[in-house]
């Protein structure tokens, strides 16, 4: 029931723009943290919506210049190591998505001047799904996908 209520509120916040964001933030994170944290993108239930909210577009270009390293089979979905590498010039950010998660956007790494196209972390996966790495370089969104089979999900209780 609280979940259903939240969904309605989220839909409202997406539609109402800035005002909605303020409302959403107030409800979901009472002591509202970082202003720059893209709440709409992280709360989005769909991959396209999340990418649209985060990067302004959901149109990805599959590219061999993006390499994603993750296990074929993850026995424990609570800890799935993921590494993304790309030699593309002028990378602005690298985002990681798990398509099977309740909210698929896991993380986005904004790279400053001098940073190389390399990030590594550990993510939670609810079930067997695709891990998508999205590299934003200028106005291009380059991606790579890897399927990870999860034997024990890592999100629910």
């Amino acid at each position: 029931m609280p979940d259903a209520k939240r969904r309605t509120l989220l839909k409202g916040s997406l539609a109402a723009g800035a005002v909605g964001v303020a409302v959403g933030t107030g409800l979901l994170a009472p002591r509202a943290a970082t202003a720059a944290w893209p709440e709409n993108a992280f709360m989005a239930k769909g991959v396209d919506d999340a990418l649209e909210a985060l990067l302004g577009s959901g149109t990805l270009e599959e590219s061999a210049s993006v390499r994603i390293k993750a296990p074929d089979i993850a026995e424990n979905g609570a800890v799935v190591p993921v590494t993304v590498e790309s030699g593309v010039k002028g990378i602005d950010s690298i985002s990681i998505i798990a398509t099977g998660n309740h909210t698929p956007l896991i993380a986005s790494f904004n790279l400053g001047e001098g940073a190389l196209g390399f990030v590594s972390t550990r993510i939670k996966m609810a079930k067997t799904a695709q891990v998508v790495a999205v590299v934003k370089a200028g106005d291009k969104l380059l991606s790579a996908t890897k399927k990870v089979k999860v034997t024990i999900g890592g999100c629910g209780g």
């Binding site: 992280f42 909210t103 993380a107 904004n110 940073a115 993510i123």
Partner: peptide, 14 residues
Amino acid sequence: KEVMKALWSGGISK
């Protein structure tokens, strides 16, 4: 200088 800024959800492992 900001070298890297990571934005995370609760989908990052403990």
